[in-house]
Design a protein around this nucleic acid. Sequence first.
DNA 1: TAAAAATACGAAAACGATTAAGTAACTGTT
DNA 2: AACAGTTACTTAATCGTTTTCGTATTTTTA
Lengths: 342, 342
Amino acid sequence: MVSVKDIAAECKVSVATVSKALNGYSDISEVTRRMIKEKAAEMGYLPNMAAVALKTKRTYNIGVLFADAANSGLTNEYFATVLQGARAEAESRGYSITFITNRFGNKKITYSEFCRNRQFDGVIIACIDFNDPQVVELVKSGIPIVTIDHVFNNTLAVMSDNVKGVRDLVEYLYSMGHRKIAYIHGGDSSVTHDRLTSFYRCVERLELDIPTEYIMECKYRDTNKAARCTKKLLDLKDRPTCILYPDDFTAIGGINLIESRGLRIPDDISVVGYDGISYTKIHEPTITTLLQGATEMGTTAAGKLIELIEHPKTTLRETYVIEGNVLIGESVKDINSKRKNV
Amino acid sequence: MVSVKDIAAECKVSVATVSKALNGYSDISEVTRRMIKEKAAEMGYLPNMAAVALKTKRTYNIGVLFADAANSGLTNEYFATVLQGARAEAESRGYSITFITNRFGNKKITYSEFCRNRQFDGVIIACIDFNDPQVVELVKSGIPIVTIDHVFNNTLAVMSDNVKGVRDLVEYLYSMGHRKIAYIHGGDSSVTHDRLTSFYRCVERLELDIPTEYIMECKYRDTNKAARCTKKLLDLKDRPTCILYPDDFTAIGGINLIESRGLRIPDDISVVGYDGISYTKIHEPTITTLLQGATEMGTTAAGKLIELIEHPKTTLRETYVIEGNVLIGESVKDINSKRKNV
DNA sequence: TAAAAATACGAAAACGATTAAGTAACTGTT
DNA sequence: AACAGTTACTTAATCGTTTTCGTATTTTTA
């Protein structure tokens, strides 16, 4: 409501003086500046962001691109946590966060057009098919971008340390005496690729003998598929002592199947999840999993993006890798002392 | 990039004509209108929202106020689903969604100031302390508002049908032969109040005899407190045959305690959750719960808010009550045939 | 056929800020 | 005392739209 014009009138100076005083220009005397600032505060002045945006091309608004209805999106705890972190960091630095959509009024537009239309200062992309041509177009559009769990060249990226995550898990399992480790990995993506590569590297280094039947694929969060995979593993002649799942949901799917067979966890077989969703802590038994630093990923993503926005030249387009930690639950048995079959 | 001015030049008409043609004014001939529209599409024109907002005071942007870091916020599946629904509906109608914060640059401002500053067309409030003076201020600010699970007078509200929810659950339990029903209710809020009132009404109507020890309070999502309450209920001389929990998390907390006592669900005691989060479907046994129509609440909230925004006079400030449904799981025993201890 | 009405367009003033360029009043230098 | 340099402002253009008020042309009416 109250504009620079009102303050100018009140203070008997020009609008330019008010604007400059408020924005820290040096050609305003300290006494006038203080007087204007006080008056502005007193009158409850806040700049009209539309006007600021129109003039300066800066909106202090960041767009986030999350998967749409079809996928899990917001209801995926991991991504929700990342977003929460990003939001907190952005807000603490004076930026707000808006969801990116691909609609304008009643017509379909591309993500990139939407971002241009809304003039976002930057964009955070997560939890989406990174091969989508629209996403690629957005990445190439020139607007400052940070991607979560995916690396494009020439944009900022924040990754969960999947290599270390899987390594930590496998080493933990090894330390608990496990040698026959099955790995049900997720669907095709760079995340899956990193984890799988890390798994094979560990296998080699630790000189484990993992038969090919121990490696299976399962869509993330697909509990039914996870159960089917688990069934196959249980039916093997040489059954693994532990199964690694792509995420905590699939782990639960596996656990349920295992228990339905009358087997107990971890006594008969150990299981390990991934993500560290809250349910793993209240499930009985609690599930050993890899807790990803989701909040830190969010804050890093927003923080680095804002640095890039505010200092376009100085910041390099780096990839930041955020480490997670093994969250030790009760779903892995220590088989060091007791000797299991062979 | 491309503005009305560019289109005007291309079409050899004035900017006024372009604007009017694009906005459906009647004083533009059909032939020019078509020509301008085609050119605009061809040039990839999209209006600069900042300029539109500056001129018309409409941003096509809706603010959402969700609980901040301290509370569960986005990672609460119920609210995440509501938000998802709201977002989908808003987007389908050409509105985008921005999180409300209380910061402007590095200084604290009120929610209301932030909304004024960003010129939101409307606001959705959910998952927050509705007694917060800042929230009250926002509600009184005059901006179109819809609240979720709370009713202020003179604003739109979307409520989960807590009365029906609890009634449906209790009636279901009754139909399964349960007469000794304990109710652990949530902390003080209008939601809790509605549910509790509904519970008492059912008790009266069904002529159940519920001792006061059967009614306990537990903070929402506090699994430890839920376990402690459950313990007390199990230790009663006259133990209930079923326990109702304030939400699915606390139900799981209760279930774990029950099972740690060597009791089985539902054979020894039945439990019922509330919300219908995804864990209830993969928990073993699956949990009977009340699935709230979270998505529908979100779409209704956004839809009604937009109606209010676009037709300020015609829409009344109503309260919309969204019904949920009992999601029948395996955690409630049918004790009609078999006779339990008295 | 002249006046009135309708049609189709344009000029220009907003909206609320920012900022380059200009200017008046001092201050300091020689 | 004259000049340049500094300080502290103001003027005015601008960002990209919308929208009021004109106005020229055509159509209708009497």
